[in-house]
């Protein structure tokens, strides 16, 4: 790479993070990288492999496909026991794959809900995966609901907030005037935060609905 990282033209307008290593930090050696390596880390931050861009010119469509395949392979979840829970996640938290989606965790939530919302199934202090906040904007009382859901496509699991005014009929359509926003907090949970903010109504019920393919 020529030029200097202080040259803003190299990164301005591009959404990717850029960082500059320091001798005192030694990120390059910690990731066992050599010049022009792409180092791939898995969900547990274990080093999977490195793909060197000097040896593999990404101008070659075959090399580009090769790198893409490495990334996609790592990002593809494996669920050998077909219980809607990724094997890696089960092993990480339970030491084996004996849990099922319906297994209740120590906090009383199902294992599936814990996985879908980024909560630890071993925590006894998990709060509700659906949170509420009241506020005011433009002189109007507003209510915001927060939920988390997994980034990317994860075994077809769907996480939705559903709304009702009578506890009889539920809808996943946003209430009138509601605004939905997404934010990746980059907090190592693999989830994004979904916020639905709407004008406050006299009565509204919400629930989190998590489903997995049969």
């Amino acid at each position: 790479m020529s030029g200097s990282l202080t040259d803003a033209a190299m990164f301005n307008g591009k959404p990717l993070p850029w960082v500059r290593d320091k001798v005192a930090v030694g990120a390059q050696s910690k990731l066992q990288a050599v010049y022009r390596d792409v180092v791939i880390l898995d969900a547990l931050n274990q080093r999977v492999t490195a793909y060197n861009l000097t040896n593999n010119n990404l101008g070659d469509p075959i090399k580009m496909a090769e790198l893409r395949s490495l990334l996609v392979t790592q990002a593809t979840l494996i669920d050998a026991d077909h219980d809607a829970l990724p094997d890696q996640w089960e092993t990480q938290h339970f030491g084996n794959r004996s849990a099922t989606a319906e297994t209740l965790t120590r906090s009383g939530l199902s294992t599936l809900v814990c996985f879908a919302t980024g909560l630890s199934p071993n925590s006894t202090t998990n709060t509700s995966p659906l949170a509420l906040e009241l506020g005011t904007a433009e002189n109007t009382s507003r209510v915001s609901f927060f939920q988390r859901q997994r980034l990317g496509k994860v075994l077809g699991i769907q996480t939705q907030t559903r709304f009702s005014s009578d506890l009889q009929t539920w809808s996943d359509l946003l209430p009138a005037g509601a605004v939905l926003t997404r934010q990746n907090p980059y907090d190592g949970t693999g989830t994004e935060i979904i916020t639905v903010t709407s004008p406050r109504e006299e009565r509204r019920f919400v629930k989190l609905h998590v489903t997995a393919p049969q």
């Binding site: 990282l5 990164f11 990717l16 993070p17 850029w18 960082v19 500059r20 290593d21 990120a27 390059q28 990288a33 010049y35 792409v38 880390l41 898995d42 969900a43 547990l44 274990q46 080093r47 999977v48 492999t49 990334l71 996609v72 392979t73 790592q74 990002a75 593809t76 979840l77 494996i78 990724p86 094997d87 890696q88 996640w89 997994r150 980034l151 990317g152 496509k153 994860v154 990746n184 980059y186 693999g190």
Partner: peptide
């Protein structure tokens, strides 16, 4: 050794090979 994070957060990961 400055470095750049090329991409991230593509999805959850598969079983580690590392």
């Amino acid at each position: 050794f400055p470095f750049l994070q090329l991409s991230c957060g593509l999805a959850a990961a598969a079983v580690s090979l590392g």
